[in-house]
Each structure stands twice: as structure tokens, then as C-alpha cells.
Amino acid sequence: MSIHNIVLRLPKDRIGALIGRDGSTKAKIEQECGVKLRIDSRTGDVEISAGEVPEESDISTARMIADAIGHGFSYERASRLLEPGNTLVIVDLREYAGHSRSDLKRIKGRIIGEEGKARRVVEELTGAYISVYDRFVAIAGTVDQVKAAEEAVRELASGGMHKVVYGKLQERRTMMRMERMKLWRKPGEPERDRGPEPIPGGGGV
């Protein structure tokens, strides 16, 4: 395998999403990343190779987008990975559930929450995108966003209380907000403390 050619295997039931209607998603990835995709729907193998201008091909980003779609993201959400500095992390929940289907279902339920509340709150507090698919949790965003969301997901998977996890994320967001305020505050201007922001959705799960 050369640096101008990589192959990854995706779940076969996600190949349709990668191709898109009339090949539209495949075409978008090829155009945005300057690559060529060869997709085998029988095996789920996806070959990503450099386009006509190899030096302008972004194979690593194309791979992240394909991987994100393969783990449950829509193209619209996965395309966030086109932004410079954004990344993708995939957590295998078998690290916590082993091969127990009942434990996997329980852990996924904790991460998703009732009517998707837990996932939505973590997304809102971190700014990352999260997809829970099969035994995986895929997380996309900036390095800092992904790190915070991954820590939250792993803590929930380990049995951590939702309220505690949300509190840590809220504290992180408040600290980041204060740092931004310091950068924009004029010399001599007093620091304003608006107090903690409410947790999205309120309450716990």
C-alpha cells in the first residue's frame, strides 16, 4: 500500500450512505478531497487513491469522512472534517461491554440517553458531533472538542453519573468562555462573572 492508495473496510449496510443517491456523496468526497473512490459493495472495501493531481489530493481527510459515514454520520455532518484541524475518533464499546450484548445495549443507552438527550447534551457542551452506531461511538470536531467528548463518552460507558459528566463539561465550557473574555477585554476593564451557564436540557438522565 503506497501513500497514494489506502483501503478501509466499512460495514456493508453503510455503503449506500457512502455512495449516496445516484453517487452524489461519493462524487462530493472525490471533488472536495481530490481523490478517487473505488467501492466494493459486496465486501465493504473502500479504496481511496490520489486523483489526477496527486499533490492536491487529501487522502487522509477522505478516509476520515468515509470512516465517519461508515460509523453512522450523514455526509452533512461528516463533511465537517473538511475544516482544517478537525479530526475523528472512534471508541469501541467492547472495551467496556466485552462480548455481552446486554451490556452493550445498556452502555449505548447511557450514551444516547432518553430520546437522545445524553448525546445531545454532550454535543452541545463540547461542540463535537457524536454518532452511536453498532458497537462504536464516532466523534468529530476540533481536537479539543473531540478530546472533551471522548472523555465524557468513556466516563458514561464506565458507569459515571450523567449529572457529574455534564458538570465537568459545563465547568470546561465556562473556563473556555472566561479565557475568551480575557483575550477580548480592554486593559483596565474589570472582569465580569455571569455565573455558570445552564446545562442544555436541564436536569439529569
Rank of each mutant, 00 (worst) to 15 (best):
G116N: 09
E76C: 00
E114I: 11
G195N: 09
V205T: 11
K186S: 11
S2H: 10
E30A: 04
G202W: 05
G159T: 04
E191I: 12
R154C: 02
E47M: 12
S60I: 09
S49R: 14
V137F: 04
D144M: 03
R119Y: 00
A66L: 06
N5S: 15
E124C: 01
L125C: 06
E115I: 09
A157T: 10
A148K: 07
K12M: 11
L169C: 06
H4P: 00
V122D: 03
V153P: 04
R101L: 03
L93F: 01
R94H: 03
E55T: 15
M178V: 08
A66R: 10
M64C: 10
E115G: 00
I130A: 02
M181I: 11
S79N: 13
G188C: 09
E191D: 13
L8H: 08
L104S: 01
G188F: 06
K105N: 01
I111G: 02
A157R: 04
G98F: 00
G72I: 04
E171L: 05
S49F: 01
E30Y: 07
I130W: 02
S158C: 03
L183V: 14
Y166A: 06
A50T: 15
Q31A: 14
M178K: 15
R38W: 01
D58C: 06
Y96T: 02
A50R: 13
H162N: 08
N5V: 06
D22W: 03
R21K: 15
L125A: 08
R177G: 10
L8A: 08
R77G: 07
D67P: 00
A148N: 05
F136N: 13
V164C: 00
G116K: 08
V89I: 13
L10H: 07
I6F: 07
P198G: 06
L82E: 13
M178G: 03
E189A: 14
K168Q: 14
L169P: 05
G127F: 02
R110I: 06
E197Y: 06
E171T: 14
K163M: 08
K26C: 09
T174N: 08
E150C: 02
V53S: 12
E124W: 01
I48N: 10
R101S: 06
C33R: 04
R110P: 02
D193S: 08
V7T: 15
R192E: 15
A17Q: 14
A50E: 15
A128V: 12
I130E: 05
